Computed example of a mutant assay.
Amino acid sequence: MRALNLQAKPLSLAERLADLAVDALIDEADLSPKPALVDRRGNGAHTDLHLGLMHASALSLWPAFKEMADAALAIGGINPALREHIGRIGREGEQAMLATTQGVNTHRGAIWALGLLVTAAALEPTSRRASEVTLRAARLALLDDRYAPRPLSHGAQVALRYGARGAREEAQLGFPAVMQRGLPQLQRSRVQGHGEQNARLDALLAIMTGLADTCVLYRAGEQGLHTMQSGAQAVLDAGGSASLAGRRRLHELDQQLIALNASPGGAADLLAATLLLDRIEHDGILQGAF
């Protein structure tokens, strides 16, 4: 009688990229203490979200991320066909997410950002540097999707009203909030020995200092945006989340944003993008697959 073969089947590239995307969303949700965002402490400025819902939402998106990566591998180039294909997959993924959350928008912006990055990573799997992946994602985001619904999202409406960059423009520019603020701060805090959780908090704060977060603008206007940006900078100036002074400032920022009902959901999505790009660059399983 043959012994059972208990060796795990190797993951495909698309499966591994989907794993990394879901892991990034879950790690972003778990990260604590985030100002006015859902985390392990509670619901932040939200009344309709909680940590379990964020986890369930992230897991529901795994098939969509895998399909996007598979589409990139099948089509093989940046062209309108790929753009429209991943657009359709993203809309189907959004419907799966909403079915899971009973209509609550948990990760709509993240589907766009992380979906583009997963697709871009799959297109050239040996070209994994964050700068290379975001450049391909930007080229893809610049293409039109003929089948995309045209009504403006809340974020797009706010971006138009305030002259801010929305999620679409952020992607089309190659994710500058990630490349110029999030990733450099993540790496800087690691080098300084702040610990991984504090490094991720500092990366989120760095993103918040310069982002015209449309979620904050929608919920709290320009006052909320100014409070977010200046408060995040104050935390970093005080030594970051690894310092006692920085933690005090972080607590103050949390209370101020909750009082304004201002939740920086756009910054949270870009932190997840930061974590995903960091893992694509350094993931040992991905490196062994190429």
Rank of each mutant, 00 (worst) to 15 (best):
G231N: 02
D70E: 14
H154P: 04
G76A: 10
L17E: 04
T119P: 11
N79R: 06
L160Q: 14
T126Q: 14
I26S: 02
L135R: 15
T47Y: 11
Q172A: 00
D237I: 05
Q197C: 01
Q287E: 14
V104C: 03
L183M: 06
R129N: 13
M68L: 14
T227Q: 04
L61C: 11
G90T: 05
G224E: 00
V191I: 05
Q157N: 15
A167M: 11
S241C: 13
M228N: 06
A220H: 09
D19Q: 14
H46C: 10
E132N: 14
L277R: 06
A259V: 01
M208I: 08
K66R: 13
N5H: 14
N105V: 06
A289F: 05
A156K: 15
L82K: 04
W112I: 01
Q7K: 15
D237V: 01
I111A: 04
M97L: 06
L140K: 00
Q187S: 09
Y162F: 01
E15Y: 10
A262G: 12
A137E: 02
A245K: 05
M54A: 02
D144V: 06
P125F: 09
P151H: 03
L53P: 03
A8R: 05
E92G: 13
M208T: 08
Q256F: 03
I86P: 09
L152F: 08
A56S: 11
A159K: 00
D27W: 08
S57D: 07
G52C: 03
A64I: 07
D19M: 09
S127P: 12
D202T: 02
M1A: 14
S12M: 02
T47L: 03
I75Y: 13
M68Y: 02
M54H: 08
G155D: 04
A267E: 05
E170T: 00
N105K: 13
P33R: 14
L82T: 02
G239F: 02
G239I: 10
V158K: 12
D27N: 06
D23I: 07
D278P: 00
L82M: 11
A167Y: 05
A148G: 01
R279P: 00
N79A: 05
A24T: 07
Q102K: 15
R248E: 15
T100I: 01
L117A: 08
L211E: 00
G288K: 10
A29H: 06
R139Q: 12
G90Q: 09
Q102T: 03
A220G: 03
N79E: 10
Q157G: 12
I111N: 01
E28F: 04
A206C: 10
G90R: 10
R168P: 02
S12G: 07
M179C: 09
A69I: 04
A36G: 01
A36L: 00
A203K: 05
E252R: 12
L276M: 07
G166D: 15
R88N: 13
R279E: 15
L186H: 14
L257H: 10
L25M: 11
E124C: 06
E92M: 15
H282A: 09
I207M: 00
L116H: 11
D213C: 00
G42R: 01
G76L: 11
L186S: 04
A242H: 12
T119A: 13
R16I: 03
H85S: 09
G155Y: 01
L25K: 08
A58R: 13
Q192F: 07
A120P: 10
A122D: 02
L31D: 11
P80K: 02
A56Y: 05
